[in-house]
Write a protein that binds this DNA or RNA. Structure first.
Lengths: 186, 186
DNA sequence: GGCATAAAATACCGTTCGGTAACAAATTGA
DNA sequence: TCAATTTGTTACCGAACGGTATTTTATGCC
Protein backbone atom coordinates (compact mmCIF):
# COMPACT_ATOMS: atom_id res chain seq x y z
CA UNK A 1 0.00 0.00 0.00
CA UNK A 2 2.95 2.34 0.64
CA UNK A 3 2.37 5.07 3.21
CA UNK A 4 4.92 7.24 1.47
CA UNK A 5 2.85 7.41 -1.67
CA UNK A 6 -0.31 8.21 0.26
CA UNK A 7 1.47 11.08 2.00
CA UNK A 8 2.62 12.32 -1.36
CA UNK A 9 -0.82 12.21 -2.88
CA UNK A 10 -2.42 13.83 0.15
CA UNK A 11 0.17 16.56 0.32
CA UNK A 12 -0.23 17.40 -3.32
CA UNK A 13 -4.02 17.49 -3.01
CA UNK A 14 -4.03 19.61 0.15
CA UNK A 15 -1.39 21.89 -1.26
CA UNK A 16 -2.81 22.31 -4.74
CA UNK A 17 -6.31 23.29 -3.66
CA UNK A 18 -7.21 23.71 0.00
CA UNK A 19 -7.07 21.27 2.92
CA UNK A 20 -10.70 21.99 3.80
CA UNK A 21 -11.82 21.05 0.28
CA UNK A 22 -10.12 17.66 0.14
CA UNK A 23 -11.95 14.76 1.78
CA UNK A 24 -10.51 11.52 3.05
CA UNK A 25 -12.61 9.75 0.43
CA UNK A 26 -11.00 11.76 -2.34
CA UNK A 27 -7.49 11.03 -1.06
CA UNK A 28 -8.20 7.29 -0.95
CA UNK A 29 -9.51 7.40 -4.47
CA UNK A 30 -6.52 9.36 -5.78
CA UNK A 31 -4.05 7.10 -3.96
CA UNK A 32 -5.82 3.97 -5.16
CA UNK A 33 -6.32 2.55 -1.68
CA UNK A 34 -9.30 1.81 0.51
CA UNK A 35 -10.41 3.85 3.47
CA UNK A 36 -9.70 1.24 6.16
CA UNK A 37 -6.13 0.96 4.90
CA UNK A 38 -5.64 4.65 5.36
CA UNK A 39 -7.23 4.60 8.79
CA UNK A 40 -5.08 1.69 9.91
CA UNK A 41 -2.00 3.66 8.92
CA UNK A 42 -2.88 7.13 10.20
CA UNK A 43 -5.65 6.54 12.74
CA UNK A 44 -7.81 9.49 11.75
CA UNK A 45 -8.03 12.42 9.40
CA UNK A 46 -6.25 14.45 12.03
CA UNK A 47 -3.41 11.92 12.06
CA UNK A 48 -3.12 12.01 8.29
CA UNK A 49 -3.06 15.80 8.19
CA UNK A 50 -0.47 15.85 10.90
CA UNK A 51 1.73 13.38 9.01
CA UNK A 52 1.36 15.42 5.84
CA UNK A 53 2.34 18.57 7.68
CA UNK A 54 5.42 16.87 9.12
CA UNK A 55 6.44 15.72 5.69
CA UNK A 56 5.83 19.17 4.25
CA UNK A 57 7.87 20.81 6.98
CA UNK A 58 10.92 18.74 6.29
CA UNK A 59 10.59 18.85 2.52
CA UNK A 60 9.63 22.49 1.96
CA UNK A 61 9.69 24.65 5.07
CA UNK A 62 13.27 23.61 5.65
CA UNK A 63 14.19 25.74 2.64
CA UNK A 64 12.95 28.85 4.42
CA UNK A 65 14.86 28.02 7.57
CA UNK A 66 17.93 27.42 5.44
CA UNK A 67 17.64 30.95 4.09
CA UNK A 68 17.32 32.36 7.59
CA UNK A 69 20.31 30.38 8.83
CA UNK A 70 22.53 31.02 5.84
CA UNK A 71 24.52 33.67 7.68
CA UNK A 72 24.02 36.30 5.01
CA UNK A 73 23.34 39.90 5.93
CA UNK A 74 19.95 41.57 6.28
CA UNK A 75 19.74 42.87 2.74
CA UNK A 76 20.76 39.61 1.07
CA UNK A 77 18.54 37.48 3.27
CA UNK A 78 15.49 39.64 2.69
CA UNK A 79 16.20 39.48 -1.02
CA UNK A 80 16.33 35.71 -0.82
CA UNK A 81 13.02 35.61 1.06
CA UNK A 82 11.46 37.90 -1.50
CA UNK A 83 12.71 35.66 -4.27
CA UNK A 84 11.34 32.59 -2.57
CA UNK A 85 7.92 34.08 -1.92
CA UNK A 86 7.40 35.71 -5.27
CA UNK A 87 9.26 33.49 -7.71
CA UNK A 88 9.95 30.02 -6.37
CA UNK A 89 7.89 27.48 -8.31
CA UNK A 90 7.18 25.56 -5.11
CA UNK A 91 5.07 28.46 -3.91
CA UNK A 92 3.10 28.68 -7.12
CA UNK A 93 -0.04 27.39 -5.44
CA UNK A 94 0.80 28.88 -2.07
CA UNK A 95 2.18 27.32 1.07
CA UNK A 96 0.46 24.33 2.64
CA UNK A 97 1.47 25.46 6.09
CA UNK A 98 -0.13 28.86 5.65
CA UNK A 99 -3.26 27.27 4.26
CA UNK A 100 -3.54 25.04 7.30
CA UNK A 101 -2.88 27.96 9.61
CA UNK A 102 -5.52 30.10 7.91
CA UNK A 103 -8.15 27.43 8.66
CA UNK A 104 -6.72 26.50 12.05
CA UNK A 105 -10.10 26.24 13.75
CA UNK A 106 -11.10 23.46 11.37
CA UNK A 107 -8.13 21.26 12.19
CA UNK A 108 -7.99 18.34 14.59
CA UNK A 109 -6.13 18.80 17.86
CA UNK A 110 -2.81 17.18 16.94
CA UNK A 111 -2.51 18.98 13.60
CA UNK A 112 -3.42 22.26 15.23
CA UNK A 113 -0.80 21.73 17.91
CA UNK A 114 1.80 21.05 15.24
CA UNK A 115 0.81 24.17 13.33
CA UNK A 116 1.26 26.27 16.45
CA UNK A 117 4.57 24.62 17.18
CA UNK A 118 5.90 25.34 13.70
CA UNK A 119 4.60 28.88 13.98
CA UNK A 120 6.56 29.36 17.20
CA UNK A 121 9.71 27.85 15.74
CA UNK A 122 9.46 30.09 12.69
CA UNK A 123 8.93 33.15 14.83
CA UNK A 124 11.97 32.24 16.92
CA UNK A 125 14.03 31.80 13.77
CA UNK A 126 13.04 35.26 12.57
CA UNK A 127 13.96 36.74 15.93
CA UNK A 128 17.32 35.00 16.04
CA UNK A 129 18.13 36.15 12.55
CA UNK A 130 17.15 39.75 13.20
CA UNK A 131 19.06 39.84 16.47
CA UNK A 132 22.19 38.82 14.65
CA UNK A 133 21.56 41.65 12.19
CA UNK A 134 21.04 44.11 15.03
CA UNK A 135 24.24 42.98 16.72
CA UNK A 136 26.02 43.59 13.44
CA UNK A 137 24.65 47.14 13.44
CA UNK A 138 22.44 46.37 10.44
CA UNK A 139 19.04 47.23 11.84
CA UNK A 140 16.78 50.32 12.07
CA UNK A 141 17.12 52.09 15.42
CA UNK A 142 14.04 52.09 17.58
CA UNK A 143 12.33 49.07 16.06
CA UNK A 144 12.26 46.08 18.45
CA UNK A 145 13.41 42.90 16.78
CA UNK A 146 10.34 41.05 18.05
CA UNK A 147 8.08 43.50 16.24
CA UNK A 148 10.27 43.26 13.17
CA UNK A 149 10.13 39.48 13.27
CA UNK A 150 6.36 39.46 13.47
CA UNK A 151 6.13 41.99 10.67
CA UNK A 152 8.48 40.01 8.47
CA UNK A 153 6.55 36.80 9.08
CA UNK A 154 3.23 38.41 8.32
CA UNK A 155 4.38 40.04 5.11
CA UNK A 156 6.03 36.85 3.94
CA UNK A 157 2.84 34.90 4.60
CA UNK A 158 0.74 37.52 2.86
CA UNK A 159 2.88 37.41 -0.26
CA UNK A 160 2.74 33.63 -0.52
CA UNK A 161 -0.99 33.56 0.18
CA UNK A 162 -1.46 35.93 -2.71
CA UNK A 163 0.44 33.61 -5.00
CA UNK A 164 -2.09 30.94 -4.08
CA UNK A 165 -4.86 33.20 -5.31
CA UNK A 166 -3.21 33.64 -8.70
CA UNK A 167 -1.83 37.11 -8.22
CA UNK A 168 0.83 38.26 -10.68
CA UNK A 169 4.27 37.27 -9.27
CA UNK A 170 5.84 40.51 -10.43
CA UNK A 171 3.19 42.47 -8.59
CA UNK A 172 3.72 40.38 -5.50
CA UNK A 173 7.44 40.98 -5.59
CA UNK A 174 6.82 44.70 -5.90
CA UNK A 175 4.47 44.75 -2.93
CA UNK A 176 6.67 42.60 -0.70
CA UNK A 177 9.75 44.61 -1.58
CA UNK A 178 7.89 47.76 -0.65
CA UNK A 179 6.70 46.27 2.63
CA UNK A 180 10.13 45.01 3.65
CA UNK A 181 11.88 48.22 2.66
CA UNK A 182 11.04 49.64 6.07
CA UNK A 183 13.41 47.08 7.60
CA UNK A 184 16.44 48.31 5.65
CA UNK A 185 16.05 52.03 6.29
CA UNK A 186 18.55 52.05 9.13
CA UNK B 1 -41.45 36.09 9.52
CA UNK B 2 -39.50 39.32 8.83
CA UNK B 3 -36.74 39.12 6.25
CA UNK B 4 -34.93 41.96 7.96
CA UNK B 5 -34.45 39.94 11.11
CA UNK B 6 -33.24 36.91 9.19
CA UNK B 7 -30.65 39.05 7.44
CA UNK B 8 -29.56 40.38 10.79
CA UNK B 9 -29.20 36.96 12.32
CA UNK B 10 -27.38 35.58 9.30
CA UNK B 11 -25.02 38.53 9.10
CA UNK B 12 -24.12 38.25 12.75
CA UNK B 13 -23.52 34.52 12.46
CA UNK B 14 -21.43 34.78 9.29
CA UNK B 15 -19.52 37.71 10.69
CA UNK B 16 -18.89 36.37 14.16
CA UNK B 17 -17.48 33.02 13.08
CA UNK B 18 -16.93 32.18 9.42
CA UNK B 19 -19.38 31.98 6.51
CA UNK B 20 -18.18 28.47 5.64
CA UNK B 21 -18.95 27.26 9.16
CA UNK B 22 -22.55 28.47 9.31
CA UNK B 23 -25.17 26.27 7.69
CA UNK B 24 -28.59 27.24 6.42
CA UNK B 25 -30.05 24.93 9.05
CA UNK B 26 -28.28 26.82 11.81
CA UNK B 27 -29.47 30.18 10.51
CA UNK B 28 -33.08 28.99 10.40
CA UNK B 29 -32.80 27.72 13.95
CA UNK B 30 -31.25 30.94 15.23
CA UNK B 31 -33.83 33.07 13.42
CA UNK B 32 -36.69 30.89 14.63
CA UNK B 33 -38.03 30.19 11.16
CA UNK B 34 -38.38 27.11 8.98
CA UNK B 35 -36.22 26.28 6.03
CA UNK B 36 -38.93 26.62 3.34
CA UNK B 37 -39.67 30.13 4.59
CA UNK B 38 -36.05 31.12 4.12
CA UNK B 39 -35.93 29.54 0.68
CA UNK B 40 -39.13 31.32 -0.37
CA UNK B 41 -37.53 34.62 0.56
CA UNK B 42 -33.98 34.18 -0.73
CA UNK B 43 -34.23 31.33 -3.25
CA UNK B 44 -30.99 29.61 -2.28
CA UNK B 45 -28.06 29.80 0.06
CA UNK B 46 -26.28 31.84 -2.57
CA UNK B 47 -29.19 34.30 -2.60
CA UNK B 48 -29.12 34.62 1.17
CA UNK B 49 -25.37 35.19 1.25
CA UNK B 50 -25.67 37.77 -1.47
CA UNK B 51 -28.42 39.61 0.44
CA UNK B 52 -26.33 39.51 3.60
CA UNK B 53 -23.35 40.92 1.75
CA UNK B 54 -25.44 43.73 0.29
CA UNK B 55 -26.71 44.60 3.73
CA UNK B 56 -23.20 44.46 5.16
CA UNK B 57 -21.86 46.70 2.42
CA UNK B 58 -24.32 49.45 3.12
CA UNK B 59 -24.15 49.15 6.89
CA UNK B 60 -20.41 48.69 7.44
CA UNK B 61 -18.28 49.03 4.33
CA UNK B 62 -19.80 52.46 3.74
CA UNK B 63 -17.80 53.65 6.75
CA UNK B 64 -14.56 52.83 4.94
CA UNK B 65 -15.65 54.60 1.79
CA UNK B 66 -16.64 57.59 3.93
CA UNK B 67 -13.09 57.77 5.28
CA UNK B 68 -11.66 57.64 1.77
CA UNK B 69 -14.04 60.32 0.52
CA UNK B 70 -13.69 62.61 3.50
CA UNK B 71 -11.33 64.96 1.63
CA UNK B 72 -8.66 64.81 4.30
CA UNK B 73 -4.99 64.62 3.38
CA UNK B 74 -2.90 61.50 3.04
CA UNK B 75 -1.56 61.48 6.57
CA UNK B 76 -4.92 62.03 8.25
CA UNK B 77 -6.75 59.54 6.06
CA UNK B 78 -4.19 56.82 6.65
CA UNK B 79 -4.43 57.50 10.37
CA UNK B 80 -8.20 57.12 10.17
CA UNK B 81 -7.85 53.83 8.29
CA UNK B 82 -5.35 52.59 10.86
CA UNK B 83 -7.75 53.54 13.62
CA UNK B 84 -10.61 51.76 11.93
CA UNK B 85 -8.67 48.57 11.28
CA UNK B 86 -6.97 48.29 14.64
CA UNK B 87 -9.42 49.83 17.08
CA UNK B 88 -12.97 50.05 15.73
CA UNK B 89 -15.19 47.67 17.71
CA UNK B 90 -17.00 46.71 14.52
CA UNK B 91 -13.86 45.00 13.30
CA UNK B 92 -13.36 43.09 16.52
CA UNK B 93 -14.23 39.78 14.84
CA UNK B 94 -12.87 40.81 11.46
CA UNK B 95 -14.62 41.96 8.33
CA UNK B 96 -17.34 39.85 6.77
CA UNK B 97 -16.37 40.99 3.31
CA UNK B 98 -12.79 39.87 3.75
CA UNK B 99 -13.95 36.57 5.16
CA UNK B 100 -16.12 35.97 2.12
CA UNK B 101 -13.33 37.02 -0.20
CA UNK B 102 -10.85 34.69 1.51
CA UNK B 103 -13.14 31.73 0.75
CA UNK B 104 -14.26 33.01 -2.62
CA UNK B 105 -14.08 29.63 -4.33
CA UNK B 106 -16.68 28.25 -1.94
CA UNK B 107 -19.27 30.90 -2.76
CA UNK B 108 -22.19 30.63 -5.12
CA UNK B 109 -22.01 32.53 -8.41
CA UNK B 110 -24.05 35.59 -7.49
CA UNK B 111 -22.30 36.15 -4.17
CA UNK B 112 -18.93 35.67 -5.80
CA UNK B 113 -19.81 38.19 -8.48
CA UNK B 114 -20.84 40.70 -5.83
CA UNK B 115 -17.59 40.15 -3.93
CA UNK B 116 -15.59 40.86 -7.05
CA UNK B 117 -17.68 43.91 -7.77
CA UNK B 118 -17.13 45.34 -4.31
CA UNK B 119 -13.44 44.54 -4.59
CA UNK B 120 -13.22 46.54 -7.82
CA UNK B 121 -15.15 49.45 -6.35
CA UNK B 122 -12.88 49.52 -3.31
CA UNK B 123 -9.77 49.40 -5.47
CA UNK B 124 -11.10 52.28 -7.55
CA UNK B 125 -11.80 54.28 -4.41
CA UNK B 126 -8.24 53.77 -3.21
CA UNK B 127 -6.90 54.86 -6.59
CA UNK B 128 -9.09 57.96 -6.69
CA UNK B 129 -8.04 58.94 -3.21
CA UNK B 130 -4.34 58.44 -3.87
CA UNK B 131 -4.53 60.32 -7.15
CA UNK B 132 -5.94 63.31 -5.32
CA UNK B 133 -3.04 63.08 -2.88
CA UNK B 134 -0.55 62.90 -5.72
CA UNK B 135 -2.10 65.91 -7.42
CA UNK B 136 -1.72 67.76 -4.12
CA UNK B 137 1.98 66.87 -4.14
CA UNK B 138 1.51 64.60 -1.15
CA UNK B 139 2.83 61.33 -2.53
CA UNK B 140 6.18 59.52 -2.78
CA UNK B 141 7.89 60.07 -6.12
CA UNK B 142 8.31 57.01 -8.27
CA UNK B 143 5.54 54.93 -6.75
CA UNK B 144 2.58 54.45 -9.13
CA UNK B 145 -0.72 55.18 -7.45
CA UNK B 146 -2.14 51.87 -8.70
CA UNK B 147 0.58 49.97 -6.91
CA UNK B 148 0.08 52.12 -3.83
CA UNK B 149 -3.66 51.45 -3.92
CA UNK B 150 -3.15 47.73 -4.11
CA UNK B 151 -0.62 47.85 -1.32
CA UNK B 152 -2.90 49.91 0.88
CA UNK B 153 -5.82 47.58 0.28
CA UNK B 154 -3.76 44.49 1.05
CA UNK B 155 -2.30 45.87 4.25
CA UNK B 156 -5.69 47.06 5.42
CA UNK B 157 -7.20 43.64 4.78
CA UNK B 158 -4.30 41.91 6.52
CA UNK B 159 -4.69 44.02 9.63
CA UNK B 160 -8.43 43.37 9.90
CA UNK B 161 -8.00 39.68 9.21
CA UNK B 162 -5.57 39.54 12.10
CA UNK B 163 -8.13 41.11 14.38
CA UNK B 164 -10.43 38.24 13.48
CA UNK B 165 -7.81 35.80 14.72
CA UNK B 166 -7.60 37.50 18.09
CA UNK B 167 -4.32 39.33 17.60
CA UNK B 168 -3.56 42.13 20.04
CA UNK B 169 -4.99 45.41 18.63
CA UNK B 170 -1.99 47.41 19.79
CA UNK B 171 0.31 45.05 17.95
CA UNK B 172 -1.87 45.27 14.85
CA UNK B 173 -1.76 49.05 14.95
CA UNK B 174 2.00 48.93 15.24
CA UNK B 175 2.36 46.58 12.26
CA UNK B 176 -0.08 48.47 10.04
CA UNK B 177 1.51 51.82 10.91
CA UNK B 178 4.89 50.40 9.97
CA UNK B 179 3.57 48.99 6.70
CA UNK B 180 1.85 52.22 5.67
CA UNK B 181 4.79 54.39 6.65
CA UNK B 182 6.32 53.74 3.24
CA UNK B 183 3.46 55.74 1.72
CA UNK B 184 4.28 58.90 3.64
CA UNK B 185 8.02 59.01 3.00
CA UNK B 186 7.72 61.48 0.13
C1' DG C 1 -70.25 30.34 8.95
C1' DG C 2 -68.03 28.32 4.74
C1' DC C 3 -64.24 28.54 1.43
C1' DA C 4 -60.40 29.67 -1.43
C1' DT C 5 -55.70 31.21 -0.75
C1' DA C 6 -51.36 32.17 1.10
C1' DA C 7 -47.95 31.17 4.62
C1' DA C 8 -46.08 28.24 7.79
C1' DA C 9 -44.07 23.86 9.49
C1' DT C 10 -43.09 18.78 9.27
C1' DA C 11 -40.99 15.43 7.20
C1' DC C 12 -38.52 13.90 3.74
C1' DC C 13 -34.95 13.50 -0.56
C1' DG C 14 -30.31 12.48 -2.32
C1' DT C 15 -25.54 13.25 -1.36
C1' DT C 16 -21.35 13.57 1.14
C1' DC C 17 -18.91 13.44 5.18
C1' DG C 18 -15.63 10.86 8.78
C1' DG C 19 -15.29 6.45 10.52
C1' DT C 20 -15.94 1.19 11.14
C1' DA C 21 -17.74 -3.75 11.22
C1' DA C 22 -17.53 -7.85 8.66
C1' DC C 23 -15.27 -10.50 5.47
C1' DA C 24 -11.74 -12.25 1.84
C1' DA C 25 -6.93 -12.79 0.38
C1' DA C 26 -2.29 -13.00 1.16
C1' DT C 27 1.71 -13.71 4.17
C1' DT C 28 4.07 -15.65 7.93
C1' DG C 29 5.90 -19.21 11.27
C1' DA C 30 6.48 -23.83 12.88
C1' DT D 1 0.78 -28.38 5.55
C1' DC D 2 -1.95 -25.97 8.34
C1' DA D 3 -3.16 -22.42 11.40
C1' DA D 4 -2.53 -17.63 12.90
C1' DT D 5 -1.85 -13.07 11.83
C1' DT D 6 -1.66 -9.37 8.92
C1' DT D 7 -3.42 -6.61 4.74
C1' DG D 8 -6.94 -5.12 2.00
C1' DT D 9 -11.83 -4.65 0.33
C1' DT D 10 -16.76 -4.20 0.31
C1' DA D 11 -20.40 -2.55 2.41
C1' DC D 12 -22.26 -0.13 5.76
C1' DC D 13 -23.21 3.47 9.92
C1' DG D 14 -25.04 7.87 11.80
C1' DA D 15 -24.81 12.68 11.08
C1' DA D 16 -25.04 16.89 8.54
C1' DC D 17 -25.50 19.18 4.39
C1' DG D 18 -28.56 22.00 0.70
C1' DG D 19 -33.00 21.75 -1.01
C1' DT D 20 -38.10 20.37 -1.60
C1' DA D 21 -42.79 17.82 -1.70
C1' DT D 22 -46.50 17.56 1.32
C1' DT D 23 -49.40 18.80 4.82
C1' DT D 24 -51.02 21.78 8.31
C1' DT D 25 -52.24 26.34 10.01
C1' DA D 26 -53.73 30.91 9.55
C1' DT D 27 -55.80 34.67 6.80
C1' DG D 28 -58.84 37.21 4.29
C1' DC D 29 -63.27 37.48 1.65
C1' DC D 30 -68.05 36.91 0.53
Amino acid sequence: MNAEKVLDVAMTAYWQSDPADVSVNAICQMAGISKPSLYREFGSEDGLTRAVLDSYAERVLSAVFAILHSGEGLQATLAALIDFASADPRMETGCLFYKLRAGKHRLGPVTRARVEEIDAVAQAAYVTFLKSCRDAGDWPDGLPVEAGAKYLGEQFALAITQRASGEDPARIREMLTLALSVLTRS
